[in-house]
Design a protein around this nucleic acid. Structure first.
Length: 597
RNA sequence: GGGCCGGUAGCUCAGUUAGGCAGAGCGUCUGACUCUUAAUCAGACGGUCGCGUGUUCAAAUCGCGCCCGGCCCGCCA
């Protein structure tokens, strides 16, 4: 094994060094155009193909979404330049199940322990292709289809148009036949090239793994190749999978090219060939491993030009690596309970060559940053030039699926839209929506995230709105859709505060009175306050009376407020108390101030 | 052991192309507002730009050496 020279175009760290554009996706798009327009045998009118792909092996977490969302921004930059783009995603579902995941997720994105589904049944399927394993949830045709569906839904809720391609179907329909035949015919050459990267490749190596017709597992021992018949002979031997061995059944049989799979290092370049892939982002795990060999195989075995690569760094979740097995994961569906989809899309506009933490604890920072990004696009901030340039390029693809979801074809706002994101690819709709974003959507109001969290202290929508108005976030003349849109952040921010249990996690203690320790003076002051409220006074007057009653009894004003917050929120801070108490139902307020329950 | 990517304020991150005063937001602290929803406003604190070294009038930025973290270099994907 040596260290083969890499073709200069195949360096996967494409964002290293000088870049022509401030937004990375535009720089990558430009690279793709250079390659595509240079390509001797390709029709410039053919759509550019961007691919991503993973094995549907378990919970598809936010990190996995890089495969789709990074490609989306590149696709958008190309569409912006008038090119037609197909974004495809291969579910690499003929890969064998190698070990049992500890966590799974149902189609709605609820994570469950392996023990909650039929683990025993799953264990019998080690070594079989994901599409040959029954769905543990029983809702899809196979294990592979279940998790492919989950990935597809993740893309869908982000409004990203992806064509899902099942690898198994590519094999079964014969799409891989030619590439397989070619590799088997040229297996000397295939061995030589791959042998540069892998020690294990020896004279017996055959780049094809049949599926055993007896036990259904992927096998590795090919004993003969019959190109004319289009078959291989095999023996079903044991297979090493990490530290464990998956037993073979010893069966000797014959398989067609459709009854097996190519080893990954060949399968990837074969996918590029079959699907005509022009660009593919991939995680850093591939960057030094399968990418260099794959690019080499494409060039020097298949005689193809490999796609424009892009290695991306991995995300962490609250500072720790994502781990499907331990359950340290978050899915798109989860994050959308905490943030608007455009904020999540924005997260993926950041430089892919840097590792990034998705911090739930500091989610308010991400949202604030997004709000600033949006203001920069609309020219509402004195953003610096670079930020403005990035916003100009990145904001339209970030916001378009949101605008598409919230306005109908005539540009009229849709109240409580069913979906938060709708994907759009055709040029006319894109233009219409971008114009809509520029003139109508620019009126949107974003409540500061932490303020929205505080508004979540009450479930009463009218009260939320009133407080938002009183605090000047929503002007009197705001159109109805603007108000609704502004307040739609409250439930998400509320969920964030609740989940993190942070200082914005106010919760009106309606049913049970929190423990309070009161001295006699304070009790009298509270009684007087209750009497005052009972007599019927305006919100501002109640606020004033809180001061007055505290002063009358020589109680520190700050402490008296704290007592109030303790009584109603079991917290030492909270909303502006007077107006808030004025809005709550009188009976409850009086009873609580009088410590009656 | 070898290769690659990353390391900038307490936190999240810009800035590294093309060398030119060390930056933003958040947090913290102080002050103001006849003071209590995230307040707001003003100000302050906060840095060995991972470490060292070389080049340079000038280094977060370029070279070399090293440290730390991650990934790859077996299999698999």
């Amino acid at each position: 094994m040596s260290d083969p020279e890499m073709h200069p175009d195949d360096d996967p760290y494409v964002l290293q060094g000088p870049q022509p554009h401030p937004f990375w996706a535009e720089s990558v798009a430009e690279k793709i155009l250079d390659r595509v327009d240079d390509h001797p045998d390709r029709d410039p009118d053919d759509p550019i193909v961007i691919k991503g792909g993973i094995s549907p092996s378990g919970v598809p977490h936010l990190g996995n979404m890089n495969e789709i969302v990074r490609g989306y921004f590149v696709a958008e930059a190309l569409r912006e330049r008038g090119r037609a783009v197909r974004q495809v995603f291969t579910a690499d579902d003929r890969d064998p199940l190698r070990k049992l995941p500890r966590k799974l997720a149902d189609l709605d994105g609820n994570v469950v322990d392996l023990g909650e589904v039929n683990a025993g049944a799953l264990g019998r399927n080690l070594g079989k292709p994901y599409t040959a394993i029954p769905d543990p949830f029983g809702c899809c045709d196979s294990y592979g289809e279940h998790f492919s569906n989950l990935i597809e839904r993740s893309a869908e809720v982000l409004g990203i148009p992806v064509e899902m391609v099942s690898n198994t179907e590519l094999y079964e329909s014969g799409e891989f036949d030619d590439a397989t035949r070619y590799l088997l015919k040229n297996r000397e050459q295939a061995r030589d090239v791959l042998g540069e990267y892998q020690d294990k490749v020896d004279g017996d190596y055959v780049p094809f793994n049949p599926i055993c017709e007896e036990c259904g597992k992927i096998t590795e021992t090919v004993t003969g190749v019959d190109l004319d018949a289009g078959t291989v002979e095999y023996v079903c031997t044991d297979m090493e999978a990490g530290d464990q061995t998956i037993d073979g059944c010893g069966h000797e049989g014959t398989a067609t090219f459709r009854e097996g799979k190519l080893p990954w290092r060949f399968e990837w370049p074969a996918q590029w060939r079959v699907l005509g892939v022009d660009h593919e982002p991939f995680g850093k795990d591939h960057a030094e491993g399968s990418w260099p060999s794959g690019a080499d195989i494409a060039r020097n075995v298949f005689g193809d030009v490999p796609p424009v690569p892009m290695a991306y760094e991995w995300f962490t979740l609250d500072g720790q690596p994502f781990s499907s097995s331990s359950g340290h994961v978050i899915m798109v569906q989860d994050t959308l309970k905490l943030l608007e989809p455009e904020v999540l899309r924005y997260f993926f506009t950041k430089d892919p060559s840097k590792a990034r933490d998705f911090s739930i604890e500091h989610l308010d920072q991400l949202v604030d940053e997004f709000d600033g990004f949006e203001r920069a696009f609309f020219g509402e901030d004195d953003a610096d030039e670079t930020d403005a340039d990035i916003a100009a390029a990145a904001y339209p693809p970030v916001i378009r699926p949101t605008v598409a979801a919230r306005f109908d074809a005539e540009g009229a706002p849709i109240s409580n839209p069913e979906r938060a994101s709708v994907s759009v690819t055709d040029a006319d709709s894109r233009d219409r929506l971008d114009a809509l974003a520029e003139d109508t959507f620019r009126e949107r109001i974003r409540l500061p995230y932490t303020f929205a969290a505080v508004l979540g202290m009450t479930d009463d929508p009218a009260l939320r709105e009133e407080i938002a108005r009183r605090e000047g976030h929503v002007p009197d003349d705001a159109p109805e859709w603007v108000t609704e849109f502004a307040l739609s952040r409250v439930s998400r921010a509320r969920e964030w505060a609740r989940r993190t249990g942070n200082e914005f996690d106010y919760d009106l203690k309606r049913t049970e009175m929190p423990d309070v320790d009161l001295d006699a003076e304070t009790e009298v002051a509270l009684d007087e306050l209750a009497d005052f409220i009972e007599a019927g006074h305006a919100p501002d007057e109640i606020q004033g009376e809180i001061y007055e009653s505290a002063k009358r009894h020589d109680i520190d004003v700050g402490e008296f407020f704290s007592v109030g917050y303790r009584l109603f929120f079991d917290d030492d801070q909270g909303p502006k108390l007077g107006p808030f108490l004025a809005k709550l139902d009188r009976e409850f307020v009086l009873a609580r101030l009088r410590r009656e329950g």
